[in-house]
Simulated scan of single mutants.
Amino acid sequence: MSSVQINRIGLTYGQTFLLIGLGAALWFCAAIILSVIAPMGALEGSMRAVTYALVIPGTVPFIFLVRKLAKLRPDQLFTGIGIATTTALITDGIVIAYFPSVYGSTLPHITNCAAIILWGAGVGMLLASIFNRGAEK
């Protein structure tokens, strides 16, 4: 009998706490990237579509990095990315409500940054659902 406790979502408690930390770190990385590219106009006009499109391939390495760091089995990927993404979204919500200047000084700038964080979360969950594999026999 294994001494590692599995929680009700099928992960160890260690994996769960690590995924929460990775989700916060992922949000932080996204916020740093946005603080660099948003003032350059990457979220305005036609560049917005380009930036949104680039989020898709840019998210793939993060999915596999999280999988490796949290030691997720192929069938745990969707759940694990869900925990990390939820953490990033909660962090984003807190920042928008209480520290909006993290994203900028004007409402359009803040909402553009928040919107791309939401887009990235959706992309991450979609990719995790595609890359998730059934339990090995």
Results as ranks from 00 to 15, higher is better:
residue 34 L to A: 07
residue 13 Y to H: 13
residue 35 S to R: 15
residue 20 I to L: 15
residue 29 C to T: 13
residue 29 C to A: 15
residue 17 F to R: 11
residue 33 I to L: 15
residue 46 S to A: 07
residue 16 T to E: 11
residue 42 A to T: 01
residue 48 R to K: 13
residue 32 I to P: 00
residue 10 G to I: 02
residue 38 A to K: 14
residue 11 L to P: 05
residue 37 I to S: 11
residue 23 G to T: 01
residue 22 L to N: 01
residue 14 G to L: 12
residue 51 T to E: 09
residue 31 A to V: 10
residue 39 P to H: 09
residue 51 T to H: 11
residue 24 A to C: 12
residue 40 M to K: 10
residue 27 W to T: 01
residue 50 V to L: 14
residue 19 L to T: 02
residue 41 G to Y: 09
residue 22 L to A: 02
residue 45 G to V: 01
residue 15 Q to F: 06
residue 22 L to Y: 00
residue 35 S to M: 11
residue 18 L to Y: 00
residue 48 R to N: 09
residue 11 L to I: 03
residue 30 A to Y: 05
residue 47 M to I: 04
residue 36 V to K: 05
residue 38 A to W: 06
residue 42 A to P: 01
residue 15 Q to R: 03
residue 10 G to Y: 01
residue 27 W to L: 14
residue 46 S to E: 08
residue 30 A to C: 04
residue 51 T to Y: 13
residue 47 M to V: 05
residue 43 L to W: 12
residue 49 A to R: 13
residue 17 F to L: 12
residue 35 S to T: 07
residue 39 P to G: 08
residue 19 L to Q: 00
residue 45 G to W: 11
residue 31 A to Y: 13
residue 40 M to E: 12
residue 26 L to V: 03
residue 21 G to I: 02
residue 12 T to G: 03
residue 14 G to F: 11
residue 41 G to R: 04
residue 51 T to D: 04
residue 12 T to A: 06
residue 12 T to C: 03
residue 26 L to C: 09
residue 20 I to G: 06
residue 11 L to C: 09
residue 27 W to A: 10
residue 47 M to P: 00
residue 46 S to L: 07
residue 22 L to E: 05
residue 42 A to N: 02
residue 50 V to E: 04
residue 31 A to D: 14
residue 23 G to S: 07
residue 25 A to K: 12
residue 43 L to C: 08
residue 24 A to P: 03
residue 18 L to V: 05
residue 23 G to K: 05
residue 44 E to S: 14
residue 34 L to F: 08
residue 28 F to Q: 07
residue 37 I to Y: 10
residue 25 A to Y: 05
residue 51 T to F: 14
residue 35 S to I: 01
residue 20 I to E: 04
residue 37 I to F: 13
residue 30 A to F: 04
residue 48 R to T: 12
residue 33 I to T: 14
residue 22 L to D: 06
residue 33 I to K: 09
residue 38 A to R: 15
